[in-house]
Write a protein that binds this DNA or RNA. Structure first.
Ligand code: NAD
Ligand code: NAD
Lengths: 222, 222
DNA sequence: CTAACTTTGTTAAAAAAATAACAATCTTTA
DNA sequence: TAAAGATTGTTATTTTTTTAACAAAGTTAG
C-alpha cells in the first residue's frame, strides 16, 4: 500500500503503534543535533529491521533520499504531522485522584500540544485543588462545561465502576476521543475513539514472563 | 502447538498479551457468580472470535468440557496460575514522584500478590515520606538494600535521564524483571525481562486516530 | 564528469496470526 | 439409556505482518 492509494485504504494498527516509537527516537536524534540517518541505522537503534521501518513509512509518503537516507528534522516533522502533533489538542480529565493528578501535572503533554483545559472530581478533597494551574471542579458541572467548551479528548482516571457513566457524559458532550486508564472496556459509538492504557495488564505480562523463564519450558517468542 | 509440546516451544507474545484481558473478564464473571461460560459467550463479551480464545487457551492446556464449556472458577484459577498470580511477587519502586506515588498507593497490586517492599528517591521531599505504609528511602541505599532482600521486580518511575543507571543497579542487585514507566528503551542482559508502560505512546496513537478520522482518508484497520 | 557506492521505495516471499471447519465427545433431555 | 444438541480442541485455510530482494535513483570521491 502506498500513500497514493484510493480513499478507504487502511493503515494497519500495528504500524500506527510503532509511529510514537519512531517519533521518540527521532526527537532524541534531533536533540543530539544529528542531521541525517539511514533506515538501517535508525532501525538498529530501535531494534527492528530496516525493511519494516521503510515499509511503515511508505504508508504515508516518500520522506527519504536514495543514497543519502533521511534528514532527521524533515522526517520528524513528517512523523509529527502524521501523529497530529502539529496542532493543539484540548483535553479534560475526570477523576483527580492519585493517577489523575500525576497525569495532570506531567509537563511533557503540554509541551507537545496536549492541553488540559479542566479537571473534575466527585469528592471534596480533590475539588477546589489547584493542580499545575488547573482548578478541579465538581463533576456535576462536567456536562454543562462540555456544552460551552470544544474539547477533543476526555481522560478518565476514575475507578472502573464510574468509568462508563463518565464516558457517556463525555460522548454526549461531543468529545471525539477517550483516553481511559480504568481497567474496563468502555462502550462508545463508532465515531468516538477509545484508547485504553493497560497499566495492570502490563504488570501481568511481566509476571507471566518471570514465571516462565529459565526453565526451558514455555518461553516467549517476540 | 499444544501444551504437550517439547521443551523449547514458544508461546507467541500476542497470546500472552491477551491473557490479562481474559483474566479480567473471568474475574468479573466470578464476581457476578456466573458458574459456566462457553468460548462463544466469553469471546463475544471480549470482542474477539471464539476460535481465537480457544486457540489461545490450547497453548496452555485443556480447560474446557465438550458440550458444556468452561467452569468460570476453574478457568480463572488456571489463567491466574499461568500468569503467576498464584504466588507473591516482591517489588521495589524507584522514583517516588507523582506517578510513582500513584503506583505505590494503588491497592489492586497488593490484592493480587504484588508486594512493594520498599521505595527509593533522590530528593528529600519524597524521602522519609510514608506512602501507604512504605517509607521512601534515599536512593543511595538501593544497592545495599538489594543485597539483603530478595526482590523480583524493580519499578522505575524516575525521569528518563536516570532510568538506565537505576536499571543497572537493579540488574546488579539481582532483580529478574523491570517495570519501566520512563519513556526510554532500557538496555539489560537477556535474563532480565523489561516491560515498558507506554503511557505517552498511547496518547499519540489516540491523537493519530482523531486526526485521521471521518475524512475517508487513512482510516485505521484493527 | 564518471564510476563506484549507498540507500530508498516497492514488489515478492516467508512467517506469523487469525479465522474457519470439523471430528470427537460431553451434556442434556426424554 | 439413547438420541439430539452443544461445545471443545485441533487441524486446515485465509489473512496479516514481517522480512527479503532488487531496480531505480541519488551521493560521493576521484
Ligand atoms: N494508580 C495506579 O497505579 C493504577 C494502576 C492501574 C490502573 N489504575 C486505574 O486508574 C484509575 C484511577 O486510579 P487512582 O489510583 O488514581 O485511584 P484514586 O482512587 O486515587 O482516584 C480516583 C478518583 O476518581 C474520583 N471519582 C470517583 N468517582 C467519580 C466520578 N463519578 N466522577 C468524578 N470523579 C470520580 C475519586 O474521587 C478519586 O479522586 C482507576 O480506575 C484505577 O483502577 C490505576
Ligand atoms: N506522570 C505522567 O503522567 C507520565 C506519563 C508518561 C510517562 N511518565 C514517565 O514516568 C516517569 C515519572 O514521571 P512523574 O510524573 O512521576 O515525574 P516526577 O518528576 O513527579 O517524579 C520523578 C521522581 O524521580 C525522582 N528521581 C530523579 N532521579 C532519581 C534517581 N536517580 N534515583 C531515584 N529517584 C530519582 C525525583 O526526585 C522524583 O521524585 C518519568 O520518566 C516520566 O517521563 C509519566
Amino acid at each position: 500500500m502506498t500513500h497514493n492509494d484510493a480513499p478507504g485504504s487502511k493503515i494497519p494498527m500495528v504500524v500506527i503503534k510503532r509511529l510514537p516509537v519512531y517519533q521518540r527516537y527521532l526527537s532524541e536524534l534531533q536533540k543530539k543535533e544529528v542531521e541525517r540517518i539511514s533506515s538501517g541505522e535508525l532501525a538498529a537503534k530501535i531494534g527492528i529491521t530496516a525493511s519494516q521501518l521503510r515499509h511503515d513509512l511508505s504508508c504515508f509518503g516518500n520522506f527519504g533520499q536514495q543514497g543519502y537516507g533521511y534528514k532527521v528534522d524533515d522526517l520528524l516533522f513528517e512523523v509529527n504531522k502524521i501523529l497530529g502533533l502539529d496542532h493543539n489538542i484540548y483535553m479534560v480529565l475526570i477523576g483527580a485522584g492519585n493517577l489523575g493528578r500525576a497525569v495532570l501535572s506531567y509537563p511533557n503533554f503540554l509541551s507537545r500540544g496536549f492541553i488540559f483545559k479542566a479537571a473534575f472530581d466527585q469528592k471534596q478533597p480533590p475539588v477546589n485543588l489547584n493542580i499545575e494551574g488547573i482548578l478541579v471542579q465538581p463533576v456535576r458541572e462536567l456536562e454543562s462545561y462540555l456544552k460551552e467548551q470544544l474539547i477533543d479528548i476526555g481522560v478518565i482516571t476514575t475507578p472502573a465502576a464510574n468509568a462508563q457513566e463518565i464516558a457517556d457524559i463525555l460522548v454526549a458532550g461531543g468529545v471525539r476521543g477517550i483516553w481511559n486508564f480504568a481497567p474496563i472496556s468502555l462502550k462508545t459509538p463508532e465515531n468516538v475513539v477509545v484508547e485504553h492504557v493497560h497499566i495492570s495488564e502490563s504488570l501481568l505480562v511481566l509476571s507471566y514472563q518471570l514465571c516462565h523463564k529459565g526453565f526451558g519450558r514455555l518461553p516467549v517468542s517476540y
